[in-house]
Write a protein that binds this DNA or RNA. Structure first.
Lengths: 357, 357
DNA sequence: AAAAAAAATGTACGCGCGTTCATTATCTCA
DNA sequence: TGAGATAATGAACGCGCGTACATTTTTTTT
């Protein structure tokens, strides 16, 4: 193991005090150019690199942005379009801001003890993915907020709180998707929901129901899944497998279903695969619209109409905003307001909902 | 900002010394159960959490595994199958080992100064993705090795060095892919290569050429791309776009090409898209085999025959091995040998190379 | 040329924790 | 019951750095 070179040795070699070495590396205070060069030269000779841990310790700042990832059973989390895009966006911003990105994987059984993440001081701020709206999570997040720790939720709205949030207009996106199907003349449109503990699942449901109500296909007071005809409502958990399972449940009713709106592409693809097993071909026997506009949507057969969500930009924006709040406020002294943005979604039409009869 | 609770306050409340608090939290030394409880109670009351940065500082160990990511222009890096799977594997192991994962994004212009990553002490070990075999990178890696820092390359072999490496048998995988095409009766088989600066690109080329030589379709002394008929060799950079570009170059020669072996699925898909524009339909006008067996391979039309690579396991294994080397050796005192593993690949046959004529 | 101001550098301390060594309390066995 | 052994705890230091404050050197002003 190479011995650790400290500023003390650099100081000795350069014939200055340790403080001066520190000043050179932090670029603080007035400094004679000649001594600066001497110090830099000595540092180079000794191959000195400031110890980042010690710096963090002294500065009381780690230079890390934490990213909290949910536990997703049996799935390679980075391989899901949603997470990979969000993380790419965060990564981009983190790089631009000179931070590092520290990933925290949530462990299945464990309570999500967010505040310990901060108290441990390993991160200066954090972005939380896959938060769920449960009382215990809310309580944890409140603690974070009370502590003044900068954090931001992505794709999850906690109504009644003023947490920093970056979300997308899933309700509008879903509405437009279903409207598209309606405009094509379909009437019996089924909805394949994702896991209900995410607020954005509810958003999609609301968009779907609004479109259906407006078309006179649902009573005006229909609000909850229970208000839907059972053969039009299915529930999965955003996984491919759950889409396949939904196919088994849906297949007996397919004579009464013309089109399906699935809450993400993955489930849509699983559903298509599953229904194919029963001889139902998408784009011929039924129309289908997915959600996320993942890359897979471009290559399925038929190509999948889907709702594009700016996940990358959401990640980038969340990181940017939360890093700006590090240190408890902006440079002019005031603390920053909490922010909550909702980015637009966009329907991308492909062939999976063409009328072919 | 919530005031930071230190062990001092816990010690006072519990009526013990700071050292005792420390012992309780590190579970060292004999300890009267009663005092342990008093301390834990006091810690709970004050909501004390040890400061991870200070711990790292004192222990001279960060508890982080570094992951160095290459700069990939214009691509969302987490959204590529290869990286996302490897990262998932690393993430899994990191979680199991009680470490955190610190991502380091390489910056385009900057020299890859690996050793500074270690000297800065932010990570105890690291896994390097997308290393290239250039003199400067080799030199940097040598420095790491000389320093005794545990690191591991994934999917990149540096011949002549004894770096820790986790690789896959790309040569064998490519050989089998091309053999499959040969067995189906194809003779004019083109090769779409990836970026040559990665050793695994060369591996694929070798596998392809060996199969072709064995079939008597290339002279025995053919070794380099230059030894191939130009209409059979194309070069991309593993991106979708480069596959589309390759289609433009390949299209004029397609009357002399029966099948294509592409170095990854992404390029294969791009190629299929591109060739379709010219009216050439995969599985009808030409056969095609991809590489990686990404999820996209299952959903293309036709489904893409591809070579499965255990990326997830590679990531997991690399992390496991490198973390075992933290601290310069194993528990029994001896330093661990450097390791170099090569995992098997597997051909997954789908419909893209069926003979349909 | 002396006084005042500004620039440049040094001294010294603390950040929170792990850990060694010294000290005190408790137990064991005769 | 007392000596030795062992368990339990405390005191003190250093990890490498940032930085407030003190000191010295240089420049500017009168």
């Amino acid at each position: 193991m190479a011995a650790i070179v400290t500023r003390k040795e650099v100081a000795e070699l350069a014939g200055v005090s340790e403080a001066t070495v520190s000043r050179v590396f932090n670029d603080v205070g007035p400094m004679k150019e000649q001594t600066r060069q001497r110090v830099l030269q000595a540092a180079k000779t000794l191959n000195y690199h400031p110890n980042a841990i010690a710096q963090s310790f002294a500065r009381r700042r780690s230079g890390n942005l934490g990213v909290v990832l949910p536990y997703v059973p049996k799935v390679h989390i980075f391989s899901t379009y949603y997470f990979s895009e969000v993380l790419s966006g965060i990564g981009e911003q983190v790089k631009a801001s000179g931070y590092d990105m520290l990933l925290k994987f949530r462990v299945p059984g464990e309570e999500s003890d967010y505040s310990s993440i901060f108290r441990s001081q390993k991160v200066d701020a954090c972005v939380i993915l896959g938060a769920t709206d449960t009382p215990s999570e809310r309580a944890e997040l409140k603690k974070l907020e009370d502590g003044g720790f900068p954090f931001c939720l992505i794709n999850q709205h906690m109504s009644g709180e003023r947490f920093n949030e970056v979300d997308a207009d899933h309700e509008g996106g879903s509405y437009r998707a279903v409207r598209h199907l309606l405009d094509l003349g379909y009437r019996n449109i089924a909805f394949l929901s994702g896991s209900p503990e995410f607020s954005n699942s509810g958003d999609r449901l609301r968009g779907y129901m609004q479109a259906m109500r407006e078309a006179g296909l649902l009573p005006a007071e229909a609000k909850a899944p229970g208000d839907l005809p059972p053969h039009l409502y299915y529930e999965g958990n955003y996984s491919l497998t759950s889409g396949i399972k939904a196919a088994a449940a849906m297949h007996p009713h397919l004579n009464r279903i013309e089109a399906v709106f699935a809450s993400n592409d993955r489930m849509a693809i699983g559903l298509m695969q599953g229904l194919r097993e029963y001889g139902h071909v998408p784009g011929r026997d039924y129309a289908i619209v997915g959600y996320d506009d993942s890359e897979a949507a471009r290559v399925t057969d038929p190509p999948l109409t889907s709702v594009a969500v700016p996940f990358y930009e959401m990640g980038r924006l969340a990181a940017e905003q939360v890093l700006r709040r590090v240190g408890g406020g902006n440079e002019t002294g005031g603390a920053l307001e909490s922010f909550s943005v909702k980015l637009d979604t966009r329907l991308v039409v492909r062939q999976s909902c063409r009328i072919l009869r």
